[in-house]
Design a protein around this nucleic acid. Structure first.
Length: 264
DNA sequence: ATGCCTGTCTGGGACAGA
């Protein structure tokens, strides 16, 4: 089963690129972020015509997450994280697709920091860690996929250079500490697990020719719980998608899971 | 030193993104 995550940066303007990528790579599950459109204007018909059932949590103008499943309907389990009834952002949706549980996550950016947006980011991260605790304990395979808005380390495997990013919310110690606590609960960073040292950038800013210079950041991830980890067989970043006309500033990331093992 | 681009909603600027 191929599971992908793709921050589309506006599904309306990106629809041709999204459909093209779905046709080329045929993921069984695709988690999308930054739909930037309301529930009413989500292009469900076009995606169904492309062979994908979908659930989505939209929001006018910004945020928005979706889960697509090839040839089937995702069974929604939850939209929005627990822990803050006043949180109006559409950043989390969770579903069952066959034997697998999948979450599409758009963690807050948090800039500028310090400030209320950074505080919101850290608080949202805490809610995710808390919710993920129960997910990790499930006996079924669980995949947390999305844009986590964190650069895990200063290494060239995660960022081309920190010079322009020292004060950015994505690199702050508090952000990285939250990321580490999430992983320490047992989640495996799937793509990194297969490629321990390679640059695995998933985002290149639109300006300053950052794509052309390969000045990228690794901020999109697929995390696996204990049940999913042994089934991981392949992973990658569809970098070429970032170089196309009218591209998102993120590239799709994907993993391949073998059929879940049956325990005797 | 700086959203330098891009998308969205709007109604030409502002906000958000990372």
């Amino acid at each position: 089963m191929k599971i992908a995550t793709f921050n589309v940066n506006g599904i309306t303007v990106r629809l041709p690129r999204l459909l093209e990528w779905l046709a080329e790579t045929a993921p069984d599950v695709a988690c999308l972020q930054e739909l930037k459109t309301s529930d009413e204007t989500f292009p469900a018909a076009a995606l169904r015509d492309a062979g994908y059932g979908c659930i989505w949590h939209g929001q006018k103008g910004f945020n928005g997450v979706a889960i697509l499943a090839r040839g089937r309907e995702p069974v929604e389990r939850r939209r929005g994280l627990p822990g803050d009834p006043d949180d109006t952002h559409s950043r989390y949706i969770e579903a069952e697709v066959g034997a697998v549980v999948v979450a599409s996550i758009y963690l807050p950016n948090g800039n500028p920091q310090p400030g209320p947006k950074f505080a919101y980011k850290l608080a949202w991260f805490e809610r995710l860690i808390e919710h993920a605790r129960a997910l990790h304990a499930e006996s079924r395979p669980v995949v947390l996929a999305g844009d986590f808005n964190v650069v895990p380390t200063d290494s060239v495997g995660d960022i081309y250079s920190t010079r322009s990013w020292q004060d950015d919310a994505l690199l702050q110690p508090e952000t990285r500490a939250a990321w580490q606590r999430l992983l320490e609960a047992g989640w495996a960073d799937a793509v990194r697990a297969l490629y321990p040292d390679a640059p695995l950038y998933t985002f290149w800013d639109y300006f300053r020719n950052r794509w052309q210079r390969n000045s990228g950041l690794r901020i999109d991830f697929l995390l696996l719980n204990r049940a999913a980890r042994p089934t991981l067989s392949a992973a990658g970043v569809d970098r070429e998608v970032r170089g196309r006309e009218r591209a998102s500033d993120h590239a799709p990331v994907w993993i391949e899971l073998d059929a879940p093992r049956v325990t005797a």
